[in-house]
């Protein structure tokens, strides 16, 4: 579910096609955009406080074969939420789980690559201090 949230609609469509999965599903809950209140902690680790809301879109479907799937992710992309819920439902079926995971592996690889590039660019801005003069001398 985390992965589907980070994917684009096009990537999810490609994954569905790659895994030869049917898009047919009944809406248990039609894709819907709403709000989730995000929270922080006082001092980073203390009591919770309300930081502000975020838009979240959710969907829930049932496949003709009976599995149900859910999706919740940031943003307002309803078609993506529905597709993510369908993928989640297919993943619930043990015989299709491997195919779903294989089809999503491209997204995993892209995310990994982006994270590494981000880490390398960030690392280049890390400060390496060197001592000029010690005050006590």
């Amino acid at each position: 579910m985390a992965l589907a949230g980070a994917a684009t609609l096009a990537e999810l469509r490609d994954a569905m096609a790659a895994a030869c999965l049917a898009e047919e599903a009944q809406d248990l809950r039609a894709p819907e955009t709403g709000l989730v209140m995000t929270r922080g902690r006082i001092g980073g680790d203390g009591r919770a406080f309300n930081l502000g809301e975020a838009t979240v879109t959710r969907a829930a479907v049932r496949l003709p074969s009976g599995e149900t799937g859910f999706a919740y992710h940031l943003g307002r992309d309803r078609p993506k939420a529905r597709l993510a819920a369908i993928l989640d439902a297919h993943w619930q079926a043990p015989e299709r789980r491997a195919a779903v995971e294989a089809a999503l592996s491209g997204i995993v690889a892209r995310r990994e690559q982006e994270a590494q590039a981000h880490a390398r660019r960030t690392a280049a801005t890390r400060v390496n201090f060197f001592t000029l003069v010690r005050g006590e001398d």
Binding site: L35, R39, G40, G44, E53
Partner: peptide
């Protein structure tokens, strides 16, 4: 935001 339902509150972020 007033036009949207609130689904609930998230877990506090782990900064």
């Amino acid at each position: 935001r007033t036009t949207l339902p609130r689904f609930g509150a998230a877990l506090p972020v782990e900064t």
